[in-house]
Each structure stands twice: as C-alpha cells, then as structure tokens.
Simulated scan of single mutants.
Amino acid sequence: MRRSEIAEQDRFMLLRQREFRIAADVVADAWMSFPSVRAVAVIGSVAKALWKEVPRFSEFRRKGIEVWHECRDLDLALWIDSQEQLSALRRAPRPGRYERPTSKELVPASSASSSIYS
C-alpha cells in the first residue's frame, strides 16, 4: 500500500467528519428555533478529535495500517421542556438538497466561532 493511498484515506475520513459537523449545525439551528428546545449536543466520534486505528476495510486491516477513525453516523442529544412538538421537531431539519463543500470551503472546527463543538 502506497503512502499516497493512506494519506487519501485519512483526508477522506477528516472530510467525512467535517461533513457530519456541517449537518449537525444545520439540524441544531433548525431545532433551536423551537421554544421548547433548551439544548442540542453532538456526541460520539463526530464531536471529538479523531484517533488512528486499524479500520474495518480489508485492504488496510490485512496490513495493519492505521488511519483516522471512520465517522459512520451523527449522534445528537436534544433537551426539551415539553414533548408537545415532537412531530414538528422530527420534520424540522429539512435543509433541502445538500451540496458537498469543496475542501477550500471547509473551515476547521477550531476556527468556527459559532460552532456547537466549541
């Protein structure tokens, strides 16, 4: 396995985490518009710094090559005062068609002052 392939896999894992963070911001913004919502938190691997591990992909696993952890889903915690608007909350995060940002458009989470990850 070439170093360039490993570097490409690492770049993809970091991009994937950033995309999940963008999605979390969209959903959190939509939910926070409801008066009954008190807080939204991102939990799991999307919320923390990624770590190196031997992944489930056979080409890396067979050779014991470590790459950044793969974020496979987005976990959000929601604190509400009332359950009366649950149906509306389920429908709220409808950002429309999601356009994947280019790497130039991505802002590192550490420099995003309004981010929910700070």
Rank of each mutant, 00 (worst) to 15 (best):
Q85W: 04
D75R: 15
W68T: 01
E19D: 13
R3F: 04
P95K: 08
A49N: 13
I43M: 14
A7D: 15
V37K: 00
S4I: 03
A112R: 14
Y117I: 05
K104G: 02
R3A: 08
R11F: 09
K48D: 00
R38S: 04
D75A: 15
S115R: 12
A41K: 12
M13K: 14
A41Q: 03
A41P: 06
R90M: 08
A39M: 07
M1H: 13
P55N: 02
A30W: 04
F12D: 12
A30C: 05
L76A: 08
A109W: 00
R61S: 02
V67H: 06
E99Q: 12
G64F: 08
T102W: 03
P95Q: 01
R94G: 15
F12Q: 15
E99N: 11
L106N: 05
A88W: 05
D25G: 07
E53D: 10
Q85L: 06
L106C: 07
A23H: 11
R3S: 12
L14H: 04
R18T: 08
R2W: 00
G96R: 07
Q83K: 13
H69A: 09
S45P: 04
S114R: 05
L74S: 03
E8A: 15
A47D: 01
S115M: 10
A28R: 06
H69K: 07
R21P: 03
S4D: 03
R94W: 09
W51L: 04
E99W: 11
I80W: 02
L15S: 13
A77S: 06
S113F: 13
P95A: 00
A28L: 02
M13Q: 13
S45C: 07
D73N: 02
K48V: 11
K52N: 08
T102F: 04
R11P: 15
R2D: 12
V46R: 01
D73F: 09
W79G: 09
S58N: 14
R97K: 14
A49E: 15
V27M: 14
S113M: 14
P55F: 00
E105A: 07
V40P: 07
D25V: 14
T102H: 05
A28N: 10
D25N: 11
R3K: 14
P55K: 01
S111I: 06
A88N: 05
S58T: 15
V46E: 05
S33F: 08
E5R: 07
G64N: 06
R94P: 01
V26D: 13
D75Q: 15
S58V: 14
A112K: 13
